[in-house]
């Protein structure tokens, strides 16, 4: 019993990092994804081409490899000492995790947003133009709200995947929940920590499902 309590306590301390990675990644990757989607649809062929390569690389290589590159790249390529790259109280290993996750998820979100934006009927743009809305007004008032409704199910998919992907931060020795569970399992010679960690992930995703379902329902007033 004491062992279970201690397991829970230690996993909970790892949960801080898991949640940190989760929320910070969403915070950065969603706006970045929107920007990348705009870039991908840019009329400027150079911009569109570069963004296309970016998306292709991000989706075509393992996230784990990308994390390692962000972490070790500054030292091996530029000779910058990692300790110099700590941001405030955050160690660079954590900062690198957030950067790696955000860049990777932005690519996936960008493709989802692009699909949503391009599925909008051209008549919506034309009506907005005739009514005098500026391009920014048209996008934020007319297009984006409708795009959000359209892409929400796909976004939910990504968000749920992200919860589970946070465990990849172990490659940078970030002591998130999965790293904790692995350490505990080997010291206790038991699978119990893995099972508890699995329940944690599952509960988090349960909460996400409920929240996203509510969000979908709240937009069901129009079709």
């Amino acid at each position: 019993m004491a062992e279970l309590t201690s397991t829970l306590n230690q996993l909970a301390s790892g949960l801080r990092f898991t949640l940190g990675i989760f929320f910070l990644t969403l915070l950065f990757s969603i706006p970045l994804g929107l920007l990348v989607a705009r870039g991908r649809m840019s009329k400027n062929k150079i911009v569109a081409g570069l963004v296309r390569v970016y998306i292709s690389v991000m989706r075509g290589t393992p996230l784990m490899l990308q994390l390692l590159l962000v972490y070790f790249g500054p030292y091996y390529i530029f000779g910058v000492k990692l300790a110099d790259l700590d941001v405030g109280p955050f160690k660079y290993r954590f900062v690198a995790t957030i950067i790696g996750f955000s860049l990777n998820y932005a690519a996936y979100f960008a493709e989802i947003f692009r699909g949503g934006i391009q599925s909008m009927p051209v008549g919506q743009y034309e009506a907005a133009q005739i009514l005098g809305f500026s391009k920014a007004q048209t996008f934020f008032r007319i297009i984006l709200p409708q795009v959000i409704k359209r892409v929400l199910p796909s976004v939910t998919n990504e968000v749920i995947t992200l919860v589970k992907d946070t465990s990849l931060a172990q490659v940078l020795a970030v002591t998130e929940m999965f790293t904790m569970a692995k350490n505990l399992a080997s010291s206790q010679v038991s699978v119990m920590p893995f099972i508890v960690a699995g329940v944690f992930y599952y509960v988090m995703n349960g909460v996400i499902e409920i929240i996203m379902n509510r969000a979908e329902k709240s937009m069901r007033y129009y079709s």
Binding site: Q124, A127, I142, P145, Q146, K149, M219, S223
Partner: peptide, 9 residues
């Protein structure tokens, strides 16, 4: 417009 193009939201 022929197909109205009202803003559905």
């Amino acid at each position: 417009f022929q197909n109205f193009n009202l803003f559905p939201h």
